[in-house]
Design a protein around this nucleic acid. Sequence first.
DNA 1: TTAATTCCTACCTATTGACTCGGCTTTCTA
DNA 2: TAGAAAGCCGAGTCAATAGGTAGGAATTAA
Lengths: 149, 149
Amino acid sequence: MKLSTKGRYGLKAMLDLAIHGQNGHIALNSIAERQHISEYYLEQLIAILRKAGLVESMRGAQGGYMLAKPPQEITVGDILRTLEGSLAPVDCVMEDKKIECLQADYCVTKSIWLKIRDSINKVVDNITLQDLVDDYKQAYAQATDMYYI
Amino acid sequence: MKLSTKGRYGLKAMLDLAIHGQNGHIALNSIAERQHISEYYLEQLIAILRKAGLVESMRGAQGGYMLAKPPQEITVGDILRTLEGSLAPVDCVMEDKKIECLQADYCVTKSIWLKIRDSINKVVDNITLQDLVDDYKQAYAQATDMYYI
DNA sequence: TTAATTCCTACCTATTGACTCGGCTTTCTA
DNA sequence: TAGAAAGCCGAGTCAATAGGTAGGAATTAA
């Protein structure tokens, strides 16, 4: 029941963009450096976020990435589900599942998995990037660098 | 963020014991057969549950397993945490973690992970095996077999 | 034109999940 | 008291996945 680095790194990168990318694009390598993430690996993660419409890119010199929407319109849930897939604890209660379980009507544990899924979604859908930016600014009122996310 | 088969199979086995093991011990192979789980694999899982004090065993002919406590005193959380470890989404908020994260005071995402962990625990700690037995009996009022857990 | 940057695809490697197996020990029962 | 029926234990296997590397093509500002 662990989140992978995809979700954690991706959230770090998005928060980095929310903090440092208010005007103009940010190069991937500067995000990777600040957040101590492999640049090559982050490249793959941010491609997923781009295809999901959460970040915008600009190619070429002075290019980079920025948030596609204001940070108060991007939730932690958007980011985590984009990178991790459904946060359901078992496949049978994934939001986007194709095949309905034949035993669903008789299954007594399905309700447990549903409750877990919904409680996780409730948490992550009620925290926006702006909330995290605010927390960050409060914690670092006098600091200059952001290492700790 | 998926539960492994350890947690799912273990819960199935415990529910099987709660339903079929009211008087006397149940042989592992009969649980495995009813629940469609590899007997050899289940052996390893039930060993963990035994060491955690959730089931009791009896060796030798006519031996087997039974719940160590009444089903209303065993929660889904007890079972899942025994088999999966902490249900925390990241290591830094595991209940039993040894090393305190040095950046904990400054970390803005830690509060997210804590909320997720606590919301999962709240769900699973408030469902007992007896609750599941009741659900099962209601769903199967007229059925004889239990395949679907 | 060139340097900086994203985009895309393929590849690698260690770890883990999910079993499988063999042999030993214990205990009931005939 | 022998033998069958169970649990106990440790090792081995195999495929999938996580996490990361790498190379080169395309794009764009200066």
